[in-house]
């Protein structure tokens, strides 16, 4: 077994570390996850289909995926500006801003959730001026998108930053020397070079937003703005394990599809930069 897996090396510990890795991975991740697949396999196809096409489930999937799409798009635009500014310019407070980017990673989601609700509720700092404009943010799909934007932002910024730093200045100078204006250089030279990273960041932000629970449920309210993870929780509380599993399976398949896509994207961009 060992000789087939491993090419010769003078370093020890392959069997031990590999064995431990596989065992731990199986116990914590693979076996529990496969339980979900097994559980859904006990459902009949019509039962599965009727569960996921319930109006309530469909609406929640639409909100989760649609909201995540909008949030990831907002993040792609503003995250690009933030990454650009952090890499390209020097301004007072830059380091502080840079450190703050990771706040959504570091702040527990329940805390983000109630904080966002406090800020965007009709009585909140930002909710009040929005309400004056006739826009209600909290307890509406808009609130869901705001929370999803919050959790996804670091993904876009942190994937773009190294890509921007690695860009060769000579490429921009070449475009300028060939007569391209700053905007033409940006659209024709910089943006295509950064596109793989931007798409990766977008996909990561989207994937995080689709599955997000804690940050979203408080600001979403519970009635009309139900996200898919909340449907799973509700079904579990009603001991509808099969129903919960069916919805979870749809989300899992979508997530893994995304993960696979991100991997392909990264491989493609590595090849292009070889």
């Amino acid at each position: 077994m060992k000789s087939r897996l491993q090419r010769r090396s003078v370093l020890p510990g392959f069997g031990l570390t590999m064995g431990f890795t596989l065992m731990y991975l199986s116990l914590i991740v693979l076996i529990p996850l496969s339980g979900l697949v097994l559980k859904s396999a006990t459902m009949t196809w019509p039962a599965f289909w009727s569960t996921i096409t319930e109006d309530r489930v469909l609406a929640s999937l639409r909100l989760s995926f649609g909201g995540a799409l909008i949030a990831a798009t907002v993040n792609a635009v503003f995250g690009f500006v933030v990454a650009w500014v952090l890499v390209r310019y020097r301004f007072p407070g830059r380091r502080l801003v840079d450190a703050l980017i990771d706040l959504p990673f570091a702040l527990p989601t329940a805390v983000s959730g109630i904080a966002l609700t406090a800020v965007y509720a009709p009585t909140g700092w930002l909710g009040r001026p929005l309400a004056a404009l006739g826009i209600q943010a909290a307890y509406t799909p808009l609130g869901v998108v705001i929370a999803m934007t919050f959790v996804g932002l670091p993904f876009v910024v942190r994937t773009l930053q190294p890509a921007l730093e690695d860009l060769d200045v000579e490429i921009e100078e070449a475009a300028a020397s060939l007569g391209a204006g700053r905007f033409q250089a940006f659209v024709r030279v910089l943006l295509p070079a950064l596109l793989p990273s931007l798409l990766t960041g977008f996909a990561l932000a989207f994937s995080r937003a689709v599955g997000e629970y804690g940050s979203v449920i408080f600001i979403a309210g519970t009635t009309k703005t139900e996200i898919a993870p909340l449907v799973i929780v509700t079904k579990l509380e009603q001991y509808d394990y099969a129903g919960a599993t069916a919805v979870a399976l749809v989300m899992l398949v979508a997530s893994f599809g995304l993960l696979f896509g991100i991997n392909l994207l990264q491989r493609w961009s590595r090849r292009q930069h070889a």
């Binding site: 897996l5 370093l11 392959f14 599955g211 979870a248 989300m251 899992l252 893994f256």
Partner: peptide
């Protein structure tokens, strides 16, 4: 530190929990 068959797959599997919604992570248990 070692080369072996299936390394990329293993790395992907280790990242798997990041792609799973927290609610689903609870559900499987």
């Amino acid at each position: 530190k070692f080369n072996f068959f299936g390394k990329n797959l293993l790395v992907t599997l280790i990242d798997l929990p990041l792609a799973v919604s927290p609610v689903i992570s609870g559900l499987i248990y």
